[in-house]
Amino acid sequence: MSNLAFSSFNDFLHMDGHGVYVWSAYIISTFIILLAFLTIYRNIQLIRKRIKDARG
């Protein structure tokens, strides 16, 4: 892990023309995973509130 594979940040983003594939794969997948966490978390809050309200 000692050596960076790219000489500049621009090279890192561009990745010799492959950047568009690599970055879109990672960004969209991360977005899907985060969205799943947020959706489930929100649904847990909602069901808790509904059970509490029904209990009175």
Binding site: M1, S2, N3, L4, A5, F6, F12, M15, D16, H18, G19, Y21, V22, A25, Y26, S29
Partner: peptide
Amino acid sequence: WGLAFAPEDAVQGNSYRIIYL
């Protein structure tokens, strides 16, 4: 580590970095 530090693949170039996903 995989995106910034691992070496480039000799055949596939940088596209191989999708492997870590």
